[in-house]
Design a protein around this nucleic acid. Structure first.
Length: 559
RNA sequence: UGCCCAGUAGCCAAGUGGUAAGGCAACGGUCUCUGAAUCCGUCAUUCGUAGGUUCGAUCCCUACCUGGGCAGCCA
């Protein structure tokens, strides 16, 4: 019998399940409502994943809605970037693409309705005055002198606001709720402000634009959203969300549910600051592989599967948490482990000469693309010869205890080739090792009859004359503090990690040369890498996605 | 200070009146022609603190503590 694995439980899924059971809803409709004013980042990924996978799980749909009610901040350029990123993450909104701007007329009609109900008024107070009248966290506000205008006057004024009769900022339409509410959001919040600005979608049709709290709930209702999922900072807005929908005569009343956003240690997700990073040239762009943007993660080589996996694993709650980076890394490694071809690349080359190997001879060795436990087929030929490159750190003249790699007089296996023995160390005038001379044991060839002879260490290598020179970019976290969004004293720029990017001139095995941009590999014993779009015909460029776990580093730490 | 929310291991997170799932990390071992992966094992006498209710409390109540959010004509 086939046992279904229960989908990961969380409180939102529980609410949906209950609503379906009780008959409150027949289907689930969620939405992902980004404001097109910047690039999506990994925090948004969780929201995208939550909304889409929730709908998916119950056979419902998820809408993609551009929350574009502020013409001053938004741009059509971002709309395309957002759609590309959502698609890349693996989600499909079908024909359910919506724009809050397309509801401008409905918003207006609702405003007229509110005025007629005596629940909204045009207020002539300036922004500063409104602030004064609002009161403080501990003191109640006072009613605006314009609060009791007649319905007729309000209607007339709103119409003129819409038509552009008044200057920006001179008036607002406000909901008439409760100036003494302990919840400041209920102290007659603004519904419309005057903005004689061009809208990227609506053009110049409107001189007034609706506020988020007002537009969002109506948009949800218009679209028949059943569960309106948002992050914790909107919790105090829920009474307002409900007030609008209860007061207005709208077809459906979606339920707003809040969850805590995904935050990662050493990662800054503030939109404004990310923009400063890009515009200040602190990174190479929105898609810099160090950036937490989806564009950056994509270029870095992270897979959508890994990001979805992380979202699923960290779960959905209301506790504000900082997730460790190791969680993400592990999701990435876990995904790539069964996907990435194993190849050999030497990041910091050291020349190695096999003094007993025939000069000019090159032999082609069989090399499987996957280890046995992965069990996937495929292999290529790897050239082997007298002159090779090995990793600098794989040779030590005076190694510490338990060092199993190459050292004077000792043997080591060259992966997929022969066992070699170190005979001589060549140094330059500065005393640095520049070359290592070894002999190889012809009987120990991998796949041959002598292959079972054991040595402690195996190192990777690349043949000198056939290997490819490549630029390899190693990445680390951009910041040196756990919570770069929370820096109390000082600027985030003071906490940039100077080693966040290290560029190396590496040597890669010949088979990597025809690889395509976006191809991912495991450079054995090093990590996972992706071919970057900066690659040229002469020189490929590889980004390190994530290093492999390093057991040796741990041994060293303990010593 | 007023209102709202949250506090279960180093980091996430189930459980919500009957005696603490799981994942990540860590540690020990296994295996290994990747010091990776695999596989096995260890890791909360206790759920922010103090009281109370109860035969029994992580779960219910009260107070307190800690962290977060709210005083945009931003979203």
């Amino acid at each position: 019998m086939h046992t279904e694995i229960a989908p990961p439980a969380n409180f939102i899924r529980q609410i949906v399940e209950d609503d379906l059971h009780s008959g409150k809803h027949k289907t689930v409709v969620t939405r992902f409502p980004p404001e097109p004013n910047g690039y999506l980042h990994i925090g948004h990924a969780k929201s995208i994943w939550l909304n889409f996978s929730l709908a998916q799980a119950f056979g419902g749909v998820c809408h993609l809605r551009m929350d574009d009610t502020n013409p001053l901040k938004e741009d059509a350029e971002y709309v395309e970037a957002i759609k590309r990123d959502v698609r890349w993450l693996g989600f499909d909104w079908g024909d359910k693409e919506y724009h809050a701007a397309d509801y401008f007329q409905e918003f207006y009609d609702c405003a007229v309705q509110l005025i007629k109900l005596g629940k909204a008024y045009v207020c002539d107070l300036s922004a500063d005055e409104v602030r004064e009248y609002r009161g403080t966290l501990t003191e109640p506000g006072r009613p605006s002198p314009w609060r009791e205008r007649s319905v007729e006057e309000n209607l007339e004024l709103l119409s003129r606001m819409k038509n552009g009769d008044f200057a920006d900022g001179t008036r607002t339409l406000r909901a008439k709720i409760d100036m003494a509410s302990p919840n400041i959001n209920l102290r007659d919040p603004a519904i419309y402000r005057i903005r004689k600005a061009h809208h990227h979608r609506a053009g110049d049709a409107w001189c007034i634009y609706p506020m988020y709290d007002y537009a969002h709930c109506i948009s949800d209702s218009i679209e028949g959203i059943t569960h309106s999922i948002c992050t914790l900072e909107f919790e105090n807005h829920r009474p307002l969300y409900d007030w609008f929908l209860d007061t207005l005569e709208l077809p459906v009343h979606p339920q707003q549910i809040e969850f805590s956003k995904l935050k990662l240690q050493y990662t800054m997700l503030g939109k404004r600051k990310l923009r400063e990073m890009v515009e200040g040239g602190l990174v190479a762009g929105w898609d810099d592989p160090r950036m937490p943007t989806l564009a950056g993660l994509r270029r870095r080589g992270y897979t959508p599967e890994a990001i979805r996996d992380l979202c699923e694993k960290v779960g959905v709650t209301k506790s504000e948490v900082w997730t460790e980076l190791s969680y993400l890394s592990e999701c990435v490694r876990n995904d790539l482990n069964t996907k990435a071809h194993r190849v050999m690349g030497v990041l910091r080359p050291l020349k190695l000469v096999l003094t007993n190997y025939p000069e000019g001879q090159i032999e082609e060795l069989d090399a499987a693309y996957f280890p046995e436990d992965v069990g996937l087929p495929g292999s290529r030929k790897v050239p082997f010869g007298r002159e090779l490159f090995i990793e600098q750190e794989d040779f030590m003249e005076n190694p510490p205890k338990k060092y199993f790699r190459l050292q004077p007089g000792a043997e080591v296996r060259l992966r997929r080739a022969y066992i070699i023995k170190c005979q001589e160390v060549i140094k330059n005038e500065a005393g640095e090792v520049v070359e290592v001379h070894c002999t190889y044991d012809p009987d120990t060839k991998s796949g041959g009859s002598g292959e079972h002879r054991k040595v402690k260490g195996t190192i990777h290598w690349v043949e000198a004359t056939t290997s490819v020179t490549a630029e390899v970019r190693l990445y680390e976290e951009l910041f040196t503090v756990e919570q770069p969004d929370n820096i109390k004293d000082g600027d985030f720029r003071d906490f940039l990690n100077p080693h966040s990017l290290v560029v190396l001139e590496a040597r890669l095995e010949r088979s990597l040369f025809p690889s395509k941009v976006g191809d991912r590999f495991q450079f054995e014993r090093q990590g996972f890498f992706i071919k970057d779009l900066d690659s040229t015909a002469e020189k490929p460029v590889f980004n390190r996605i994530v290093p492999l776990k390093d057991g040796w580093a741990k041994v060293l730490q303990k010593q």
